[in-house]
């Protein structure tokens, strides 16, 4: 069941106010916290349910409704529900069970048939309405939360970049855009074609260091400084969490750290490309 903010339910459902006011005086909010154990790779989950409608709360007390968290990870094909009559859900996932984008969707679900159910806390439009609530019916829903679960060694640095061509770019220049899940390195169509053909060749030789130093090193420095200065704008993008993991893995200050020297950090993340280039050139000249 996908969250649909515009969904027209056949019975009153408590959901975020901006999506519906079936319950004008109540709220259903769920705080979801996900933590990756970087050493073991396991994922800890904690969800706190805040439900304010007294009638729905009494259903939970009588075990006629339950809190449910639907966990959905398309990369590992893991789909699981975690259920509780307590407003707190905790779970631990083994290393490898979750990876990449994982969505956590909270619900309040009926556990048995409730015949001719009605409640004065509904919107006045439902005055006099009685509904048969079947087992499994959604009684309340909150917006799902998505987390990226990437271990540093599973999200190599190259994976945060993507290349694209733009007619607006001048030849022989490249630029960087950060407003998407991957950092875009943009070139003109012609330069992009040239870059792709060169890249195929350098993979087979050690000349890759030229590309590292002329493209990826300055791009990474730019990304690190931009992210440091504006974490709020970038923190929800996938590249941000992947880069943060890599920084931690390399024992560098995480993003948002005012005092870090990102020129040095970028060289560390790229395994000293300048030194590699020097070694290459020194070897050539000898």
């Amino acid at each position: 069941m996908k969250f649909d903010s515009g969904k027209a339910w056949q019975h009153p459902v408590l959901r975020p106010k901006r999506y519906g006011d079936d319950y004008p005086y109540a709220e259903f909010e769920v705080d979801i916290d996900v933590e990756l154990d970087k050493r073991k790779g396991s994922v800890s989950l904690q969800a706190e349910y805040c439900l304010s409608d007294p009638n729905l709360l009494s259903l939970v007390d009588r075990e006629e409704a339950k809190y449910v968290l639907l966990v959905n990870c398309s990369k590992t094909r893991r789909r699981e529900t975690i259920e509780s009559f307590e407003p707190r859900i905790r779970n631990r996932f083994t290393a490898g069970d979750l990876s990449g984008r994982t969505e956590f969707s909270p619900f309040l679900i009926a556990t048995r048939f409730l015949e001719a159910y009605d409640w004065s806390g509904w919107h006045s439009d439902f005055c006099g309405l009685r509904v048969d609530i079947k087992e499994g019916y959604v009684l309340a829903v909150d917006e799902p939360k998505a987390y990226w679960i990437d271990r540093a060694e599973e999200a190599p640095l190259g994976s945060i970049f993507v290349h694209s061509a733009s007619p607006a770019m001048q030849n022989e220049r490249w630029d960087v855009q950060l407003d998407n899940d991957r950092v875009e390195i943009i070139m003109s169509e012609e330069t992009s074609r040239l870059y792709k053909s060169v890249r195929l060749e350098v993979i087979k030789k050690s000349d890759v260091h030229y590309l590292m130093n002329s493209l990826y090193l300055p791009a990474l420095v730019k990304v690190l400084y931009e992210a440091d200065n504006d974490t709020k704008t970038y923190e929800n993008f996938r590249w941000y969490s992947a880069l943060n993991n890599l920084l931690e893995f390399a024992h560098c200050p995480v993003l948002g750290s005012a005092s870090s020297n990102r020129v040095l950090d970028a060289q560390k993340l790229l395994a000293s490309p300048f030194n590699n280039l020097l070694s290459l050139l020194h070897g050539d000249s000898a």
Partner: peptide
Amino acid sequence: KGGVILLDALSDIE
């Protein structure tokens, strides 16, 4: 049915 009922949360019997 899956649009109204969270099938994942149904008991085995139901």
